[in-house]
């Protein structure tokens, strides 16, 4: 998975490309942990994300919990396949998806 990072003031955008699974979830977890301290708006762009597993969902949930306290988190450009996963797992009720 490739993570492209764009920081502007207290806004952070992470664009994910490839597969977010057991192998790659720790990378995203670390990226978020390293960059999120002063972030008020976190955007995760999933346009090029082709797959998300349980391990990946756990990272998103953890990020959402964190951002609930310090700002907001938005998920954008979600593919139909990943949107279906969000819906059936109940993530669509938790995440802000645009």
């Amino acid at each position: 998975m490739t993570i492209t990072r764009k920081m502007e003031g207290d806004k952070l955008e992470l664009a994910l490309e490839g597969r977010l699974d057991t192998t790659t979830a720790p990378e995203l977890e670390k990226e978020i942990a390293d960059s999120i301290a002063d972030v008020k708006d976190l955007t995760l762009d999933l346009e090029k994300l082709v797959y998300i597993s349980s391990a990946g969902l756990r990272v998103l949930l953890s990020a959402q919990k964190r951002m609930n306290k310090q700002g907001s988190m938005v998920i954008c450009n979600v593919s139909e396949e990943i949107m279906e996963i969000f819906e059936v797992t109940g993530f669509s009720d938790i995440l802000t998806i645009r």
């Binding site: 057991t22 597993s53 349980s54 756990r58 949930l61 797992t89 938790i94």
Partner: peptide
């Protein structure tokens, strides 16, 4: 087979 960490995810969701 379920994906690894599915049961952990379920518990995380319930705690959330």
């Amino acid at each position: 087979f379920l994906q690894p960490e599915t049961s952990l995810l379920y518990r995380d969701m319930m705690v959330y």
